[in-house]
């Protein structure tokens, strides 16, 4: 009887959603000629990892693996915050659950192990999401709350930096802080005034770090010691709501695709990128 009722319920939910096309959360990541992207089950809030070869059409990948990370369904909308590097997913597990600690939200997941453990039912995966230890306490979040615990235009994202550092960008009340964690301590930029009303995306390629706003404005930063410096600002003719980023780690490139082109594509990802993707230069 243990979990039977909940499992049946959860499987029913999954069956209902199995054939509905869901939106890609933020980006497609390419690594070692494999693509990875996530959708989210809105009832369970859990991420669904889709992957395949770049010579495949991403829309032909129907199977997915449920991951023990996710994001809540709320306003304002913040899509899943994640990045993948060398088979390890870094994510902010922002699931709303009375057992899930926001202070333990920063997770690292070995994708090969996560895929292997797919014998877990969704209820168990959900429980795993708040039992997996974090990579670090979420000091940026606590710092933000100490500054102001009233959340307004509160958006965030995470990315792998150079040499496996963790980069995190967090804004609240029109103040953005970019954080870096080297495995033992956090450092952060000074407050960067911003005027975000929708989510942004954090992009890192090599030593270059970019904040791409919802309206397509890219601010690129360099960091030396504790000094964060804005290098340049470029406006791209896109917005995050109607575009999907492509982080090509094999070629150290960042591109974007129009969501309609992605959803209607009958091409392989490689062909789609060649014909439709536009570059973003950090």
């Amino acid at each position: 009887m243990k979990n039977t009722l909940l499992v049946s319920l959860l499987l029913t939910i999954f069956a209902q959603f199995a054939f509905a096309q869901k939106a890609i959360e933020r980006k497609i990541i390419i690594e070692h000629a494999q693509f990875y992207y996530c959708t989210v089950n809105n009832d369970l809030q859990l991420a669904e990892l889709h992957n395949g070869n770049v010579q495949q059409n991403i829309n032909n990948v129907s199977a997915y693996n449920i991951l023990p990370v996710g994001r809540e369904i709320s306003d304002p909308f913040v899509p899943l915050c994640f990045d993948i590097n060398k088979g390890e997913m870094l994510a902010i597990n922002w699931i709303l659950n009375s057992n899930n600690s926001r202070n333990d939200a920063l997770k690292k997941i070995n994708l090969a192990e996560a895929i292997k453990s797919q014998n877990l039912n969704p209820a168990q995966v959900l429980e795993q999401s708040f039992l997996i230890p974090p990579i670090a306490a979420y000091e940026p979040w606590q710092f933000m709350l100490r500054r102001n615990n009233t959340l307004s235009n509160n958006f965030f994202d995470i990315a792998w930096g150079k040499d496996n550092t963790v980069l995190l960008a967090l804004c609240n009340q029109n103040e953005l802080f970019i954080w870096m964690y080297n495995g033992s301590e956090w450092k952060h930029s000074d407050a960067i005034p911003v005027n975000f009303h929708q989510y942004f995306s954090l992009i890192a390629v090599g030593t270059k770090i970019g904040i791409l706003s919802s309206e397509g404005v890219l601010n690129t930063y360099s960091v030396t010691g504790n000094q964060w410096k804005l290098q340049k600002q470029i406006k791209y003719p896109m917005n995050l709501q109607t575009s999907t980023l492509v982080i090509d780690k094999d070629n150290q490139k960042v591109l974007y695709l129009n969501n309609n082109d992605v959803e209607q594509s009958k091409l392989s990802l490689t062909q789609l990128m060649k014909s439709k993707a536009k570059k973003i230069i950090l």
């Binding site: 909940l6 319920l9 369970l44 369904i73 709303l96 209820a123």
Partner: peptide, 16 residues
């Protein structure tokens, strides 16, 4: 109703 209910939104309260 169940100790491990996963439902966290108003639509889901009304649905489930």
């Amino acid at each position: 109703k169940t100790f491990n209910s996963p439902y966290v939104t108003l639509p889901n309260l009304l649905r489930y």
